[in-house]
Design a binder for these strands. Structure first.
Lengths: 138, 138, 138, 138
DNA sequence: GTGGTCTAGACCACG
DNA sequence: GTGGTCTAGACCACC
């Protein structure tokens, strides 16, 4: 379910966050689904409970999951899609940097568009979080 | 020319790298142009010379610039665009994460495409590095 | 009567305590009134009986309610108002923290005074526990 | 400067947060002032660096302080006083609970008003963060 | 059983 | 020197 690369430069807790976000986004984890407990996951990925806990806390802070005390951690009912202008600006900046880096790796704007289409296909087939945007498409 | 935000979470040396890359990409810095010396830039942006040096070293490693001993640092003649498969995969992964984050900020795939077009206009109007790719577009 | 939010960061047993205190304070629960049994309340609010029991025990310890074995749990005859210096100091400390937090949320002392007046109106209209203090006001 | 009670039920990191907030609020720590380093403070209060770090992170998240990487931690230039409606509601709820608790400790609304005045005198003498509200008073 | 807090101490990135 | 990350393992509150 979750695959961690301990040798990766990106922190383990970041990897956990990212992968859960992706699972939710793809719809493989649906609203209300229970996540593995901190201890379970920490043994599964051979990480420290603290590290897992940190990831869960951040996911909760972002509104992706919520914890019901004594019962466990669950995918949040309302994956809040707050229109966050500040965050959007940040993401745009990151996107620009990414594209420039991509260019120096031999990729141009067309390729990036294609990549995004690929990601959309890979990810958007399920009726996950993505389905919410279908209103917009109609 | 270079604007540093000491409060930003991205390291200062990364900011320098990024901004020089952007300048080259936009064509505001052309092949053979001289960069400020480490000492000059470090006083200009109020940073530690070590920090600037680190940025220059990384830019040189990436083939964006080259240092001619005793003469200074210059934008590299041929911005080597090694088709680096590994790097492309990495960038693709980053792009996926970015898109997922964007989604949770209330943005969909269509919007991302538009953003990229915006970036292309902002950046691609000049006959900078990008122009080299135009062969591919045709 | 009692509303529990399982998502709230404040423990469920605390929420129960708080809400019963508020009901008594407002006079909606009067001296001698019978409280729901632990089992009743636990099914009503979908909580573990242990949790409800814990709340009742604490309320009893504070002298707000008393249990008559075999008969049930009742609002205590004399809501003992022990002048507890230690507790008062604690509350004062909490109040200070609260005000500082309020400030950073854009609220000043005057506003806090107004809030208290609002709470007084909301809560003090009934002839509940508060009425006992009216001697002091005169 | 900072006094920690390891026996207190409130977590050490909370105590640190609270005390720094109070210092800033009183104006004993002014904008731009340097806070002790994580290591310094952790030895000063006989706590683990992690615990101190956690406190600093939270203070930063709240916009009270900011860290300049490699240089240290400083009182934020702009103690952001975002009018946060949600937070204000939360604080109001806490205030209500506090007042009810206070009542059962033998305190009435008048007393609470007096307490607040006391806190205002204790805290508002300096030209600290509080001074910003003086515009409102005029 | 769950997550939350804390300690002790290691290693790394940044400036 | 600074803070950021992680491990190992303890204790507690809550359900």
């Amino acid at each position: 379910m979750i695959q961690i690369d301990p040798r990766s430069p990106t922190p383990i807790y970041e990897q956990i966050i990212q992968q859960f976000k992706e699972l939710c986004f793809k719809g493989l984890l649906k609203e209300g689904d229970k996540l593995p407990s901190v201890r379970e996951l920490s043994t599964m990925v051979i990480a420290n409970p603290n590290t897992v806990s940190k990831a869960y806390k951040e996911l909760e802070r972002q509104g992706i999951i919520e914890t019901l005390r004594g019962r466990g951690t669950f995918v949040s009912e309302k994956a809040k899609k707050t229109l966050d202008e500040g965050k959007m600006e940040m993401i745009k900046e990151q996107l620009k940097s990414l594209i420039i880096d991509a260019f120096y790796a031999g990729v141009d704007f067309q390729d990036v568009h294609h990549w995004i289409d690929e990601i959309e296909e890979e990810v958007g087939g399920e009726d996950g979080a993505r389905s919410k945007k279908s209103d917009k498409d109609n």
